[in-house]
Amino acid sequence: MTTIAYKDGVIAYDSRQTRGGAIVSDDAPKCQVVDGVSFFLAGAVCDEKALIAAYFGTPSAVPVECSGYAIDGGKLLMVGHDDKTGVWRQELDPANPDAIGSGSAFALAAMDMGASAEEAVRAAMKRDIYTGGKVRTMGIDQHGKASSSD
């Protein structure tokens, strides 16, 4: 999986991609921009395209193991899919830290202790074997515009 954390206008995420118990890459891109919407997804890579297609209303294979964040129209959303409702979108309060993915509990605890989103992902990397590689960040301004840094 991965760890994606949000705090104080910054989304931070690792670059590890795994398959089963093996590391496939420590330089995988986790941010995908489609039709002006930025997606930061955790879960099965094979389900990412299906979730994005379903987000835009295109019928495709059902995304089973994938969820994450989207920046759409200036709003930070948590996105995912379930069997009852299909694609769901939940607007997040930008004042509250949040994290998703296999290392989310570690990241949330770190942010509770004062860590930034980037520091929280680094903390998760120490304990979660599915989180690793580089930590990338993307800032979100009050108008929902994103700017990245590595």
Results as ranks from 00 to 15, higher is better:
127 R>V: 11
138 M>T: 14
90 Q>D: 04
54 A>H: 12
54 A>L: 10
150 D>G: 07
83 D>Q: 07
118 E>Y: 10
106 F>R: 00
127 R>Y: 14
53 A>E: 14
134 K>L: 13
150 D>W: 09
35 D>G: 03
147 S>L: 12
15 S>Y: 11
142 Q>Y: 05
59 P>G: 09
84 K>F: 10
129 I>G: 04
124 A>P: 03
55 Y>H: 02
42 A>I: 12
25 S>Q: 05
119 E>W: 08
48 E>S: 05
4 I>Y: 04
127 R>K: 08
85 T>N: 11
31 C>N: 05
142 Q>F: 08
124 A>W: 09
42 A>S: 12
135 V>P: 02
56 F>P: 00
5 A>R: 00
13 Y>P: 00
108 L>T: 08
65 E>G: 11
112 D>M: 09
107 A>H: 04
138 M>V: 15
75 K>N: 06
79 V>P: 02
106 F>M: 02
115 A>D: 04
84 K>W: 09
9 G>I: 15
49 K>R: 12
108 L>N: 03
33 V>N: 01
141 D>E: 09
92 L>R: 00
62 V>S: 05
127 R>C: 06
57 G>A: 11
48 E>L: 08
66 C>D: 04
90 Q>V: 15
62 V>D: 03
117 A>P: 00
143 H>I: 11
22 A>F: 15
3 T>R: 01
123 A>W: 11
43 G>T: 12
64 V>Y: 10
100 I>T: 05
139 G>S: 13
130 Y>S: 06
46 C>P: 01
11 I>T: 03
49 K>T: 12
123 A>K: 02
62 V>K: 00
136 R>M: 11
71 I>D: 01
38 S>N: 03
8 D>I: 12
147 S>G: 05
51 L>G: 04
46 C>H: 11
25 S>V: 14
55 Y>T: 03
107 A>G: 06
47 D>V: 13
28 A>M: 10
62 V>H: 02
100 I>F: 07
145 K>G: 05
91 E>Q: 11
114 G>S: 07
119 E>K: 03
32 Q>K: 09
112 D>H: 08
142 Q>W: 09
119 E>L: 08
133 G>M: 12
120 A>F: 12
12 A>H: 03
10 V>T: 10
123 A>I: 15
114 G>W: 15
75 K>F: 07
103 G>L: 10
86 G>R: 01
77 L>T: 08
9 G>M: 13
63 P>H: 13
15 S>I: 13
66 C>E: 05
4 I>W: 02
53 A>Y: 08
132 G>S: 06
118 E>T: 14
72 D>M: 08
60 S>K: 06
87 V>E: 04
127 R>G: 05
130 Y>L: 09
120 A>T: 11
50 A>H: 10
144 G>W: 15
142 Q>H: 10
127 R>T: 07
105 A>R: 01
122 R>N: 09
15 S>A: 15
149 S>I: 14
117 A>T: 05
12 A>R: 00
15 S>Q: 03
96 N>G: 03
92 L>A: 03
113 M>W: 13
150 D>M: 09
109 A>H: 06
103 G>S: 06
121 V>E: 05
71 I>Q: 00
37 V>M: 08
86 G>E: 06
41 L>D: 04
59 P>I: 14
116 S>Y: 07
